[in-house]
Nucleic acid binder design. Structure first.
Lengths: 349, 349
DNA sequence: TTGAAAGCGCTAACAC
DNA sequence: GTGTTAGCGCTTTCAA
């Protein structure tokens, strides 16, 4: 039997893949029975199931999901758009989604927008063409066209990484503003009064904008030094962190703490301080955001904000599955919070 | 007219998306003309094209690629399997592929195998179900079932990150063995004689295995200390690098250099050395592999092996596109080489 | 528990 | 340059 199949396959055009009909013929049943054995096994008798699986193995049948998806209007894929694959913080989120979705038999389609709303729009359109079961976006800033595409599409959407009041559909994240505010509050509590802030580029990035806002609000609230000269903007690289730090201390030697919108910048600053013989935290404190591995590995370890990266992905996936299953999730907006992690790069008081 | 469409859409079931027929009716042409306007614009007159695009805009039509792919047997998607999304070295490769493929109108399907051949097999099967135009794998170690699936599938495959003689189809990378050998040769040239090696887990990881092999061969070739006690294995985290380093120097104080299979481990070692007051490179030299940003940012900066991560992805994508276009690439195996980057974590002599 | 017929939305092949 | 016809390979619906 095995030889029969082999002979038949090699005689055929290479491109002519095994179809469900081929398996059905070999198993001596109809095509729909093959389909049921794969997709709804409990509706097929055990004896038939066994025969069918043997035929599937023997033919090396790989179901064509284009055909299946077209006929059933269910693709079991989820599109995910992140700003960049280069930053490992999103990797954890992706892992969280992968773990949950894979267990449910779903596939991830991943793409990165490069922090560009236009690129995001194109990606959303490209994803929608594939008729995914759901979509996961990063942040809540989208172009009008993106919003329109999504609103017309009628598929479940989860926005992540923010905590905004008017989500498109569902939202999982934390308040970047509160987190940033909390860090400044912590630093103020440690006695720091002149706290610089190095922001990520805020253009088209609500997470960065909210972190800046949280800083500014806390500065006012605690009566800290408020000065445009205390604020810088830098894209997250170690080198940019070093430069921003060098720039800050050169411009204003009286700064007693520097809070960076992410740990990569903060680590770059720490390395620069070491190079210049500036003692941390004795001469100046440094704080970061994200709690990446590096934050805990450097000396002194970085005081930072820990965010539930993996859990954001996992929860987003769970919400999506709920919605796909037709159950409206009880809470379409999930705030997973954050945590201030106090370490050696800031003194306690 | 706009209102007509809007009314029609809202009157319909939400799930009934706009189909090509709807656009055709509005534009007063046949469905195939819509298809041609989108996919082969130069076969349609300019006047028709204009009318069609207006109708597309007005209806908010998003082509159904499941149907299109099924009918045309072309999906314009490429499946990519990497070991992990957590390591940013693969992020650069993905970026390289994205840049090239996106420009050609292709979409990436990304998945990670977690360094497990069984997971890889499942992912390959899942990808093949989607009938991608091509597949990009990491490494050359695959399960028998994976090889069988791929050989039966008849789609273009690129393996990456290695330089092996018998690729499944095409191969883009560098020789991990030569690179590792070259680093040991460099260290020997600097006068180091007792060089420890911290490998990545070699099980199911040909890249790691080849790096270990290169080390061993160079040790013999240059008459360096050969001792099982000089070799450790650790999964890449900063913490594991610290531990391996601590372990190594505790077990054998006469080690004069430590070569790590990746920069993350090496950086962890450097941090540990600093904590213990061990001077690098005066007391012991440290070398890494990959040349990630961190390697150049720490003090002393890490001597390491630079590999063309982005270019591997870009070249893999180019080969794939060539093959998809029906042109057999002149060189189905591309060795992109590597480079020893000498920095302060090793002394010159 | 299994099957037959119809059709998912699009494009290839062939007209005109 | 544009249209008609006939599937692509699967699953839904309805029937047995």
């Amino acid at each position: 039997m095995n030889e029969d199949v082999t002979r038949r396959r090699s005689a055929r055009q290479k491109h002519a893949a095994v179809r469900i009909e081929d398996v059905a013929r070999l198993a001596g049943v109809s095509a729909i029975t093959i389909s049921r054995t794969i997709n709804k096994p409990d509706t097929v008798s055990e004896a038939t199931r066994k025969i069918v699986w043997e035929a599937i193995e023997e033919t090396g049948y790989i179901p064509n999901q284009l055909a299946g998806g077209l006929a059933s209007r269910r693709t079991r894929t989820v599109g995910v758009i992140i700003p960049t694959v280069v930053n490992s913080i999103f990797a954890d989120k992706v892992q969280g989604m992968t773990d949950v979705l894979h267990a449910a038999g779903y596939q991830l389609l991943l793409a990165n927008s490069g922090y560009s709303p236009e690129a995001e729009t194109e990606l959303v359109a490209a994803f929608l063409s594939q008729r995914p079961s759901g979509l996961v976006l990063t942040g809540v800033t989208h172009s009008d066209r993106t919003r329109r595409l999504l609103q017309n599409s009628d598929i479940p959407i989860v926005e992540t990484w923010s905590m905004d009041d008017g989500p498109l559909d569902m939202l999982v994240g934390f308040s970047n503003r509160d987190a940033s505010h909390a860090m400044v509050a912590y630093l103020a509590g440690c006695g720091y009064r002149r706290i610089a802030f190095v922001s990520a580029p805020v253009l088209n990035n609500d997470r960065a904008a909210e972190r800046l806002r949280g800083y500014l609000e806390a500065v006012d609230e605690f009566g800290l030094a408020r000065d445009q000269g205390l604020i810088r903007e830098a894209f997250f690289t170690l080198d940019n962190g070093s430069k921003a730090f060098a720039d800050l201390v050169a411009a204003d030697p009286s700064i007693d703490a520097a809070f960076f919108a992410n740990d990569v910048l903060a680590a770059g600053a720490l390395f620069e301080a070491e190079r210049r013989g500036i003692r941390v935290p004795d001469d100046i404190a440094i704080a970061g955001f994200d709690d990446i591995d590096l934050a805990g590995a450097v000396t002194p370890a970085l005081t930072t904000v820990r965010i539930p990266r993996y859990e954001i992905g996992a929860e987003a996936a769970r919400l999506l599955l709920e919605r796909i299953a037709g159950r409206a999730p009880d809470r379409p907006v999930v705030d997973l919070g954050f945590e201030i992690v106090a370490r050696g790069s800031t003194r306690t008081r």
